[in-house]
Every structure is written in C-alpha cells, then in structure tokens.
Design a protein around this nucleic acid. Structure first.
Lengths: 230, 230
DNA sequence: TTATTTGAAATCGTATATTATCCAATCAAG
DNA sequence: CTTGATTGGATAATATACGATTTCAAATAA
C-alpha cells in the first residue's frame, strides 16, 4: 500500500569512489599517511575490497585539491608540505578571509556575534587546560562564522579550502605557542568590537589580515630563531 | 645496437584522459557545449575512439574545476553561469589579483613593464579595429604579467583559475562595451605609472581592485538599465 | 666504474557485467 | 474524461577483470 521504502537496502548510499576518497583523506589528515607516502592504487583497492578504478578516481580528486601529487605512469604520493607552504597558505588565507569577512560585515547578526563570543570563551578555557587541539578547532570556527555570511560564495569556498590545507599541515608540524594564543584571543575580542562599532567594512579586512599575519610572524620567529618569545 | 628510439611513434605524448579533458574543455569554451548540455560519457568516448574510463576521469577533473556539474548515477552537464556568477567571479578576481599584484610589486623588472606597455598598445590597436576577442585576450595577459612575479604561487594559481572561469562565461554572455574598454586602457597606463613611482605595494592592491570593480559596475549598469553609457 | 639489459611492479586502457535512474505507457480511481 | 500512481524498458553511470605499456632498479658485462 504505502510506497515501499527500499527495504532491500539498495546499498551503500556512498559510491565506492567516494568511500575511497574519504578513507584516504582521513588517513592523510590523521597522519597515518605521512607526506611522501606512496599511494599504490592496487594496495588501497585490496584494503577496501574494491577494484582500482574507484580508488583511482578518489586519488585524482585528492590531486585536484592539492593533498596528493600525481606523476604520469608512476603514481600518487601524499603532498609534501614544508614550512614555506605554511607561509603561503597563511598569507592566502589572510587575503581571502579578510575580504570575505569584510563583505560579510553587512549581514552579520547579533546572534552571530553572540555565538562568536561564546566560542572565544571556549578558546579561553581550552587555553587554560592546555588543550591545543580544541583551541585550534574553535579558532577555525570563530573565523568561519565571521565570514560565513559573505554573499560571495566563491570567496567563502576558497577560504574554507585554505583552512583545510592548513589542517593537513598542522597535524604533522605545528608547534603551539601559548603566548601567541593568548594574544590571539585578545585580538578576537578586538575584532568583534570593531565589527560592532564600525560602519564600513574596510577596516575589518585589514584587521583580519593583520591578525593572520601576526600568527604567521610568530611562527616564523619561533622556527628560525628557536624559542624566542615575542 | 643503438638504443631504439620509439620510431613506432609510441604515441600521443598525452594520456587519453588528458586528451579527453582538453577536447571537452575546448568545446565548452568555444561554446559548442552550451551551459546545461548533457555530457554523456559513452558518446564522448565513441567520438574520441576510446573507452569511457579516461573520459570519466576528464569529466571529474572538469567538475573539480567547476566547469561542469556532476550528479551521482545521472551524469555530467556543463555548468550554468548566470550573471550573478559573473559578479562573484569578478569580485573574487579583484581580491586575488589585487593581493597578488601587490606582492609581485617588489619583483617586477623593467623588462616586465616594457612587455606590459607593448600589450597595452596591442589592446589599443584591437580597440581601433573593433576586435573584442584579442582585446580581451590581451587584457588577461596584461594583468597576469603584473601578478606573475608574486612569490605566493597559491595566489597566482587561484587568480589564474578565476580568469579561466571568466573566459567560460564570456563566450556565452559577454557584451563588449567600447567606452569602458577605452577607460580600461587608460587605467592600465595609470597602473603602470603607479607601479613605477610608488615604493610600497599597498596602493597597488587598491588600484587593481578598483579597476576590476569599475568594469563590473559598467557591466551591471549596462545590463540592468539597458545601454546607459557611463 | 659505466653502460646495457632484464625483470618486477604499477599505472593506463579496454571490454564487459552490474546497477541505478529516467521516461513513457498503462491502469486504476475520482 | 482527467488525474495520479505503477510498472516496464531503455539509457547511462558504476564497477570488475584482464591485457598492454611504462617506469624504475638491480644485476650483469665490458
């Protein structure tokens, strides 16, 4: 009588290619597949109990996103990310995020700001507990909320993808700097104040970019001259 | 004896997947495959005298770039681009191009500037001959030269990809506005002067972005209020 | 030491089978 | 007679297995 829902459990809901994509991606971000790791299609296919074609497609997709390098007739390997890449990503993120946040400005509601404030508080907590993982997570959430209302969807997409690249690096070679973290929280408060009080978006773009540049500078000084606190 | 060079002309130098990629892409940009056109894998495979697997890979790559949409178990179709997309792309391009050009500033040589000037002259010519096609081409070249020296390769990659998106739209629904073209050439000269005289990159970013915003504005006014010359 | 050869391993491409989606014709109900 | 649901067939994407081609490295010989 009632329209039969597919009781035969039509199956996976996810194509094998998507499955392989997620499987590989998870292993890259978790650090199990370190940069330079050779992704052999047949091996992965065997592990996932499928043929190589879906795996191949997954790998090509990851290549398009930049997480793996691919060489013709040779194969794929997890992309190398040295610290010069960190610089590149942070700089790019500053540009995109700054523009997106400024454009988002006109559409940000009081509710958004309230959420942002609660996130800062969570960051403060995780800082007190010395929990870099959630601190970093919340940091990303904070910024994404501020630019999420940007009417230019392309800008937000690009900013999101830069955040993702950043996450891939972080797991392997990110050193947490408590002093900078405290400073960062303070800048977040300032940024919210700026958004609440200002009438034009121009200053916001600069503030966001400066915020990003500052953490980049801290990272660089801490890596070249070992442990020189700002 | 001598190591046999592949006289049998081992083949294409290009993989079939790459071939299919270029083949489809060319047809999209040339306008033969209009937005919404259904890309049937088997048909394309037959036309190119190959199996569907390479075609599939090509289509997925085009999907990653945004020129085609893909629906699970249904197929691919050329991406729709309305004029709101034009706005999005131009705005994004302004942001990326502005930042990249400003960062490029310190590395631009006299030779680069000379080339840029010669390109402007070519634009002037094509404008006199009313040749919108080469005018647009040269315009792209001009801007790409100015930001090509940017040390942040990610920014230049993103800017390039936005230019490509723009080209996909142009062929289908771009109206050439001579008045704006003349103005654009003038702004190019001003931009070169700015680069030659200024010592910091800050003003350059704004100038490039303003230049892009101006052409966007012209387009919008010409499309909403039909034919109101600025 | 250097150049050539040989073989294993992995990708690239084809042919074929399976599965999902779409569309139109048929049938039942109002 | 019209409208809505159902079913069957056609079309196209998804996946598998197998053969062809390329690459890289180790072993051999000059």
């Amino acid at each position: 009588m009632t329209s039969t829902p597919p009781l035969i459990t039509t199956s996976t809901e996810l194509s094998k290619a998507q499955l392989a994509y997620l499987w590989i991606k998870e292993r890259i971000t978790s650090g199990e597949f370190t940069p330079g790791y050779r992704l052999v299609l047949s091996t992965i296919a065997t592990n996932l109990d499928m043929s190589v074609v879906p795996v191949r497609e997954a790998v090509r997709r990851l290549e398009a996103e930049g997480s793996v390098n691919f060489e013709r007739n040779v194969g794929a390997s997890v992309a190398m990310v040295d610290e010069s890449e960190y610089r590149v990503i942070m700089e790019t993120l500053g540009v995109l995020e700054g523009a997106a946040t400024a454009l988002s400005f006109a559409y940000i509601t009081d509710r958004d700001l309230a959420v942002a404030r609660s996130i800062i508080r969570e960051m403060d907590e995780s800082l007190a507990n010395f929990d870099p993982k959630t601190f970093t997570q919340k940091n990303q959430e904070f910024h994404q909320i501020l630019y999420s209302k940007c009417p230019n969807h392309r800008l937000t997409e690009l900013a999101d993808s830069e955040w993702e690249r950043l996450n891939n690096i972080r797991t392997s070679s990110f050193s947490f700097v408590p002093d900078r973290a405290r400073e960062s929280v303070a800048e977040h408060y300032q940024l919210l104040d700026l958004i609440e009080t200002s009438s034009t978006g121009r200053g916001i773009e600069e503030a966001v970019r400066a915020h990003r540049t500052a953490t980049l500078e801290t990272y660089l000084t801490n890596h070249w001259k070992t442990h020189r606190t700002l």
